[in-house]
Every structure is written in C-alpha cells, then in structure tokens.
Amino acid sequence: MRNSILKSGLAMLAVAGLASPALAGSDTKVALVPGGPHPYFAAWEQAGKDAMKDFSLAAGDYRVPQKWELSQQSQLLESLLTQGYNAFLIFPGDAVGTNAVVQEIVDNKGIAIATAGCLKDPTPALFCMGTDTGNSAYLGTKELIKAMGGKGRIAHFTGFLVDPNTQLRIDAVKKAADETNGAVTVVQVIADIDAPQPAEEKINAYLAAHAADVDGIVTTAWVPAVTAANSLRKLGDKRIKMVGIDHDEVVIKAIKDGFVNGTMLQNPYGQGYLGSYVLNKLRGGCKLKDDAPWKSNALTKKFVDSGTVFVDASQADNYVDAMRAITKTILANFEKDYMTCS
C-alpha cells in the first residue's frame, strides 16, 4: 500500500519530466544488493521494478545474499558483474571490507553507490545515500526524553556490533542523555540482537527482570524495535516510554495503541528508487559535482541523507506522506544539486 502510493507519486514526477527520459536507459542494468535478508530492504524490490519502468532501465533487480555474510555478498556481486550488471546499489556487508569488491566493479567498468549504509573513505563507491544513523538515533532519543518528562533511565536495544553504525548509534543515544546533565541516564545497552532469536531472548529476559528499573526504551535496529514493542504490549506497560525505528506493522500498531510513543522512519523505497535514477543518469554521461552539498558522517565525506522523520500516534495513519515528500524533494533537486549533465 505504502509503496503503491509512493510509486504513483514518483511515476507522476518522472512523467512530468523532473526525471527526464533516461540517457542510457537501454543498457543500464541496476542490481540492488543488500548485505543479507532483512525486512528493511523488502521495499528495494518494488523500488527497482518501478525505477526500471519509469527510467527505462535494462534491469532493476533486487538480489539478496542468502545469508548475512560478507563473503556471500562479495560472491554474489562478483557473479552479478559476470552476468553483465553495470550499476549497483549496495548495502555494504562491511563498511571497510566491501570496498574491495566495489573496486573490482569499478575496474570492470561498473559503478556503485553505497545505499542505506556507507562505505568508509577512501572508497571507490560514488557516494553514500542513506539514513544519517547517528542523527536518527540522537533525534529519537531526544523524542524519548521529551516523552519521559526530561528525566529517568533508558535502556537501548540495538544491532550487530560488527556494524560500525551500531557504535555511532550507541554514542548518539549517550550524547542525547548526557545533554540532560544527569537527569537521564542510559542504564543498559543491549547489542547484537538484530535477529529474532537473540532479540526475543535478551529483551524479554531484561524486561522480565528490570522493567521496574527503566523509564524509557530506545531501539535503533528493526528487529529489536519489533520485539520490544511486542514485549511492552505483553507486559501491558504504558509507563515505560519507547521510541522505535522503521515502519514494521507491529511497531506502527503499537504506536496507535499507545504502547510505543513513536518511531524514527527511514526511507528504504526512496533509497532504491532514487539510487537507480542516479546510477542511470551517471551512466548516461552526467557527472557528480565536487562542490555539491554533500553531507559527511563518520564514514564518508560524500553522504546524501535519504531522510528520517519521527512519527508518533498523530501521524501513524499517514506516515507515508512524510517520506513521499522527502523522496519527491530529493528526486526533484538531485540533478540540479549534485550532477552536471550536458
């Protein structure tokens, strides 16, 4: 539903000429490759299909490594390159380790954008488009602190420690808490739980033992957000405030029912759609501007924020509109702001 609304809006933009007819549409074969299976990336499949149609791409295929392994992703990317794909949107299996296979893509006349997660500079990827993870975690924690009345104890549930974004999120949550001058403290960080089994085990065990000791929960990874929302519903506890991440139905429903205060939305569909558009433009002869308004983060100096927004109960029914607006804005201005096209 969300994707279909987004799709029709963006297709109208494309038809209206904001996304002008593809310069190299006939031979741009885009592969959208996440680091492994994860619900966050499900929107990339439709994004690739829509981009293929709207921008006349030769392909816009979503290909998922069978497991969340750096070697599996590298093997898949090498195979896709052999199959003739020449443009890649890649969520790096590792911020440093994926650079090598991206270099091989470039050496074989392909191009790549790091998407949803960044590669560490120096990198052969053209740029990084994704959520500013540290900023998202910081803003989410600020919203949580507001909901807690500016004081209390926070538990932070987050993703895998081998993902450098996890440390950025941990630091950002701590930073937001430190700004309260001791009124808010982070009493527990549970990481390595962005998978159902460890998330269920650790979050439920923690809340069973310490629910009375925390006043707020912030989650900065998809699965912990879903698990924590479910746990609070089971506990029937609306005293504990929570801010989650992403748009899983469980989290959105928990927001509507008052068990979760809000969620920090990301923009996976927009990342896939916009990234495919940009890759096609670049293959058609456009160049990236050095003096474009690139943002920077801990990994790269060429970062484009694909948008993040806090959604609470008042927006839970129409949260798609917020992301659609962001995607439209980026699409409408990307060529002007970031590229030089002859």
């Binding site: 650079n99 090598a100 895998f160």
Partner: peptide, 20 residues
C-alpha cells in the same frame, strides 16, 4: 588471505563469532 582479498582487516570477515 581474506585480508588481502578485501584490502583491509575487518572484524566481520568471518561473520558473527566467526561462524561463517
């Protein structure tokens, strides 16, 4: 050898706990 392949030493080269 994997370090040579990736051009970098990365903790996730063998996955979580090296299980890959």
């Amino acid at each position: 050898m994997l370090t040579a392949r990736t051009g970098a030493a990365v903790p996730s080269m063998a996955g979580h706990l090296g299980q890959d």
